[in-house]
């Protein structure tokens, strides 16, 4: 399962695990934690079996891949390493035959973001994917998903989420074999497991820090507060961003006592 922090992919993995257990099956939902930040790509894994699941490695060759984010749905990485004839269910506003994802896979799409905005008023797409998941894969029944959702979201919130589930159950497209068989060579690696200091998180930034060296007094407050060791110290006693390590949180700008750091919008 691929999503971004804040879209509820981890909760969705637990809802599927709960729904499966409701149907008499054993299950396991593993979240992949790393440097957490709203909007950062993340993965979660679910196993379902007739006996208690004891194997605990991550799921490296899934049968089904779910993508909760419309932009990640464009990335080949969400469709890689699937079992032959694997199923890829995307949150995308277009029909599955428009997807460029490649491989010996079948693709289905549902516009979960629109469904979430209509039913929840926020682009939290997890429950708006789960109805589509139940319908398209048949792994769990719609009733079981609804039963599980009530355990996680009591009251009105549960009703709203169930509305999202039902809508996506109706709207999901049929499966279509991928039109491209060979994946492109250049690919973005979505695996950000582990810690920011060890990974390239430059693609997470919406804003990045720019230092006004005239104003900077070289006190190192920014360097002390940076949670990812993403500031290096230059010979002239001024800080500079480490491109690979900065996730764009803005703590440095916030802590600077002379306001010498400005967060600028990344231009694409």
């Amino acid at each position: 399962m691929h999503g971004r922090g804040g879209q509820g992919a981890v909760t969705a993995s637990r809802i599927i695990a709960t729904a499966a257990y409701e149907e008499g099956k054993y299950s396991q939902a593993i979240p992949m934690y790393g440097t957490e930040r709203r909007g950062a790509p993340l993965t979660a894994y679910v196993r379902i079996d007739d006996v208690r699941v004891r194997e605990r490695e991550l799921v490296h060759t899934p049968g089904i891949s779910l993508c909760f984010d419309p932009l990640l749905s464009l990335q080949q990485a969400v469709a890689n390493d699937l079992l032959p004839n694997g199923q890829v269910l995307l949150n995308a506003p277009f029909a599955p035959d428009k997807s460029e994802l490649a491989g010996n896979i079948n693709i289905a799409t549902v516009d979960a973001t629109s469904i979430a905005l209509e039913t929840l008023g926020r682009p939290i797409t997890n429950t708006a994917m789960l109805g589509a998941f139940a319908k398209a894969t048949g792994v769990v029944k719609l009733e079981s998903i609804e039963k599980a959702i009530k355990k996680y979201f009591p009251g009105r919130l549960g009703d709203m989420n169930i509305a999202a589930v039902r809508k996506s159950y109706e709207k999901v497209s049929p499966w279509v074999p991928a039109k491209n068989k060979v994946a492109p060579k250049m690919q973005v690696d979505l695996n950000v497991g582990g810690y920011g200091t060890l990974k390239d998180v430059s693609s997470w930034r919406v804003f990045y820090p720019v230092v006004n060296e005239e104003k900077c007094i070289g006190c190192k407050t920014c360097w002390i507060f940076c949670p990812e060791a993403a500031l290096e110290w230059k010979a002239n006693n001024k800080p500079a961003m480490v491109d690979r390590a900065c996730k764009g949180c803005g703590v440095c700008a916030n802590e600077c006592p002379v306001k010498a750091i400005e967060m600028k919008r990344v231009e694409i």
């Binding site: 695990a17 709960t18 257990y21 299950s27 979240p31 605990r56």
Partner: peptide, 10 residues
Amino acid sequence: GYVLSYTAEP
């Protein structure tokens, strides 16, 4: 930690 502390199971 992590693979068991944060993994959900019935």
